[in-house]
Amino acid sequence: MTTPRTSPSRDDSTTGDETQEVESPTDDVDTETALGREPAFQVADRQPLSTLLGRPVVVGVLLLALSVLVVPIVTTFVSSFARTATGALPTGFVTLEHWRYVLGFGEYGVRANAIPGLTFSVGIATAGMLLNVLIGVPVAYALSRYEFYARDWVNTLAILPLVPGVILGIAFLRTYPERGGSALGLVVGYCLLKSPYMVLTVQSSFQSMDLRHLEESARSLGASWPRALLTVIFPHAKQGILAGCIITWTLAAAEFNFTYMVHTGDPKPFSLFLFRNISNAPYLQSAAAISIYFLIVVVAILVLQTIGNSGFTTVRE
């Protein structure tokens, strides 16, 4: 446990030093004699209990929350390479048996491997992502740049998910009985469900720019409005757009609730493959199936962090 006094923290180190000066007895004597009078208010000599406990407790909660979030992820990933998992910890490393199985190289692999579903989902997610660029970027621009009637309502509609996937799923199936569960239905559904992530990410990129003056500079220099957007505005927001693409793509690649409701037939999307593994397959095999997705998320986060997002979130640094 560290105490505020000695820890190199941003808020405590600077102000902590000041407190030290005021509190140290020699210093007190010095100032008192120098001034020749008692200080009107004495700063308490001992640190209150909350000061002693505050930081350890806060850091403790952080570590607890972090371990609850991370330990199962790491365990799952590590387990996917284990031979057996009967005790508390998986044993018998390292085997690629489960990975071979879920990736379709094993003996039974042909029947239930991830590749066809993953390929299908990657295609759907990519299409949904591209549609989201075409729809989300313009609306994010209009909302950041212009004032207009009912702007707040359009904003709310654009940044808050309209309906959860389950409910959109049943509504979709009834509205478009022929197409609802098809690839097209999935693309459109994913696009709507994930569009808030695109709009929010791109908006936060736009907000860090002097949007109006950039556009006006470009136009005064002779660029037509569409040309100003394409040659000046969108290139300035390219990191935000890229971040929005990664987030919407990753979320769509493993979208379950909507997919579960609408999808029938083959190939099965990746999330339904995961579902089948989680609910029916042996533990270690499920672990391998899920680990495929973990790898995707890790790559997504690494790219997001290099282009200025703080993690898998729309919040930009």
Binding site: E216, S217, R219, S220, A223, V232, H236
Partner: peptide, 20 residues
């Protein structure tokens, strides 16, 4: 006449340079 056809030069306080 729209701004892009007026041929005026603009200099802003915020510079508004194209960072890309």
């Amino acid at each position: 006449v729209p701004p892009e056809q007026r041929n005026v030069g603009l200099v802003f306080q915020s510079y508004a340079l194209f960072d890309t």
